[in-house]
Amino acid sequence: MQNAWFFLSAAGDSRWLLPMTLVLLCALPSSRARLKWRWLTAICSTAAVTLASKLAFMGWGIGIERLHFTGFSGHAAMSSVAYPVIGLMLGGASRHGRAIGLLSGCALAIAIAWSRIPLQAHSLSEIFAGLTLGLVASAWTLRADTHPQRPAAAAVLAAVVIGLVLPLSLPHLPTHQLVIALAKALSGRTEVVESF
């Protein structure tokens, strides 16, 4: 069962999600410019809020001790800003297909978020906060266009392949260490706050 949690968790890794969504964004037709800009804004805002919450805790110890909240779960936040929109896009033109796609995307994001619990990567409050942040951003994105055109099969394939390049070519990219280094640089600390 542990392997299933690792697999699900990997599907929420930003090294995979960000390149994949960038390709899908570029593949959307220019007639969907409003959707493109909303989704790009939602992704960037979600990533920025998540990073800021991690830096606030690591650099200055800002969190909520009684909830064991040290920052938004990045996997939960980024999965829930990406997969619901992708699911709706892949659902096609029919209302039924779009509903299934949207629900599938939300279910995948929730499963990815939950995978962080058995892997002991986040507390329940951090998962819930990340999911809420990402789902609100997805909902805001889809207010621009609830009938996005299904991307071409070639674009979907390119998104998957390009999304896999970074995780496979740089499997040990020290993203967490980069956040730690940034927290140290901004706060002036020699050691970051790791836990309450």
Rank of each mutant, 00 (worst) to 15 (best):
S115F: 11
A107K: 12
A111G: 08
T41V: 11
A154K: 12
D13N: 15
A52Y: 11
L142P: 02
A93M: 06
G134I: 00
H75S: 00
G12C: 07
L178D: 05
L28E: 11
A99G: 04
I100T: 07
L124C: 07
L182H: 02
T190R: 10
A11E: 02
L119P: 05
L166E: 03
T146C: 13
L135Y: 06
G105N: 04
L28M: 13
G91H: 00
A153P: 04
A4G: 01
L28I: 13
P167E: 12
M89R: 14
R95F: 11
S30R: 13
D145T: 05
C44E: 00
A93T: 12
S125Y: 10
I127V: 15
H172V: 14
A76S: 09
W60E: 15
A56G: 13
F6D: 06
P19F: 06
P84Q: 03
V81R: 01
A107F: 08
A183W: 02
G97Y: 09
V161H: 04
I127H: 02
S125L: 08
L17W: 01
C106I: 15
I64Y: 09
L102F: 14
Y83M: 08
A185M: 13
T132N: 05
A33G: 02
L88K: 14
S187M: 14
P118K: 05
H68E: 14
W60L: 10
L25N: 03
A121S: 06
A158G: 03
V165E: 04
S73G: 06
L168V: 07
A48K: 04
S45L: 15
L124G: 11
A158Q: 11
A129G: 15
R150H: 06
F57L: 03
G59R: 02
C26L: 15
A76C: 11
L164H: 07
I110W: 08
E65P: 13
W114D: 01
L8T: 15
V23F: 02
W16T: 05
L22K: 01
E65M: 01
K184H: 09
G130K: 04
V49Y: 09
I112R: 00
V161G: 05
S123P: 03
W39T: 01
I162Y: 01
L164K: 02
R38H: 13
L186W: 12
L55Y: 09
S79P: 03
A129M: 09
S104Y: 00
L173F: 15
A185I: 08
L108T: 00
L135D: 01
F128S: 08
L25R: 03
V161M: 09
V81P: 00
V136Y: 02
P148G: 05
A27L: 10
G74F: 11
P167Y: 09
G163Q: 12
L173I: 14
A93S: 11
E194Y: 10
F7T: 11
H75M: 01
H147S: 07
G61R: 07
A10N: 14
G101N: 04
S169Y: 14
I100H: 00
